[in-house]
Design a protein around this nucleic acid. Structure first.
Lengths: 245, 245
DNA sequence: CTGTGATATAGAACACTGTTCGCTATACTG
DNA sequence: CAGTATAGCGAACAGTGTTCTATATCACAG
């Protein structure tokens, strides 16, 4: 008997759902003419959709039609959409490379892991929104946490501070990725729509009333954010604060 | 002629939409028997719904029925749901008290503003999700940014560092509030559902395989998060890192 | 070789969501 | 009093996640 989606999901949270057994490999009404629907196939096509059309476009129906089937067919392999989200985040975290802890370069190692997470998130725009809902007992996300914890402990950081800083860092990486995704998904519909470009934002800051003196004066600094400078700044900020205590 | 919702929204982004004119105060088919629907009424009832049932429950229909009308009636005062979200975040930010910058206590002042934001967000569970989507040209959110910028500049922080740090702080406050809301909205459905209590989380960490040595060893530190300790820790971390450079 | 039961696959439907179209009944203007 | 602008609102559209029920195929027992 192949595991039900519920059991599979439980295993992802260490709840060791009963017997696994053989995959069984039965075929449905379509016979062997079509590829069978598997969890892997669902996750793969889901990633494809998010990569090309963004997380907003990821619906059960969209995945189903991409697999040339109906929405209900997915529910034999996936508990619900939340489960699919968790699978995506899990596979994304599984792709993170965790270096062997090195006390000499632990700061760079942490930054490297954060940058990996960021790049993975940005590769699939908007997917970090799903990361907020993933429970902390998920094995894949826990693996990344374990890796970062090991690096920080090797660096001599106090355990409690390390634990909390990891939490903060992942939270910030999620939020940063989400914001960036939201901004460059909407392609600057200037005409009567918002978001706009940096130049337009500068113009608006300049046009602010007198109650915004600092914002007007330092508009250049406020809007300066080429590339991932802000990201590196903040991560560095937290790590530096971590060492000075 | 009273301003259309589009003009009202434009004004919120300084685009100074044409003539304001008198409110007009016309009455519809229901005559004077019922309170007229206003933007204020919509926002108020929306806040009430979010406060008692969470952001997930905030739908146009829910607001409409609370106002004893149909969904379409709202669209005369609000552009769309995104607009309503922005109104909510705007009013929330407008309630933030910004202290007169004091170079002696600027750190505490920043922490105070962040705590205010956090408490407002947590008072309306899940509403911080809407904050991610609000454009940076919104006047109400800009006001908070201006206040924090003034405080940091008074504290002698480098303008560019201050601008970026404010960005990071607000992003973190949003993310933290969202996570906390998500966690305690779902009231620990232990039986075959996730989330669970701290005790259960500790048990699961203890039951982890040997590939998670640090997580198992420091399970106590990882799960220790009474109250807003983690919040204060992270905000302090960033501010400290800000001063040591 | 035939019958039976398990099971992966679908189709249709339900209860929702945000949003728009077109009508009605009102209140102000000339 | 006539005319018109307009706030309100019912119904409908195109979506969403999810579930119920039926079907078509397979592996296996006899």
């Amino acid at each position: 008997m192949s595991p039900t989606p519920q059991q599979r999901r439980a295993a992802r949270h260490q709840q060791a759902g009963a017997g696994a057994g053989t995959p069984a490999a039965r075929r449905g009404p379509s016979g062997g003419t079509k590829k069978p629907i598997t969890v892997e196939a669902i996750v793969s096509t889901a990633f494809g959709i998010v990569e090309t059309e963004g997380y907003e476009a990821l619906t059960m129906r969209r995945v189903a039609t991409a697999l040339e089937t109906g929405p209900s067919s997915l529910y034999a392999h996936v508990v619900n959409k939340e489960d699919l989200d968790e699978l995506l985040i899990g596979r994304l975290c599984a792709a993170i490379d965790l270096p062997q802890p090195d006390p000499a370069t632990w700061r760079q190692q942490i930054i490297g892991v954060c940058a990996q997470l960021r790049d993975q998130y940005l590769r699939y725009p908007g997917i970090s929104r799903a990361a907020f809902a993933v429970a902390p007992s998920n094995l894949d996300t826990l693996r990344v946490g374990e890796g970062m914890l090991a690096i920080m402990l090797a660096g001599g950081v106090n355990p409690r501070a390390a634990a909390w800083a990891i939490d903060s860092l992942t939270l910030y990486v999620n939020a940063y990725s989400l914001e960036v995704s939201l901004l460059d998904t909407q392609p600057a519909h200037d005409e009567d729509g918002w978001v706009v470009s940096r130049a337009e934002l500068l113009r608006r800051f300049a046009a602010l009333p007198g109650t915004f003196p600092q914002t007007k004066r330092y508009a250049a600094e406020l809007t300066a954010g080429t590339g991932h400078d802000r990201f590196a700044f903040t991560v560095g900020l937290m790590i530096d604060g971590l060492t000075h205590r």
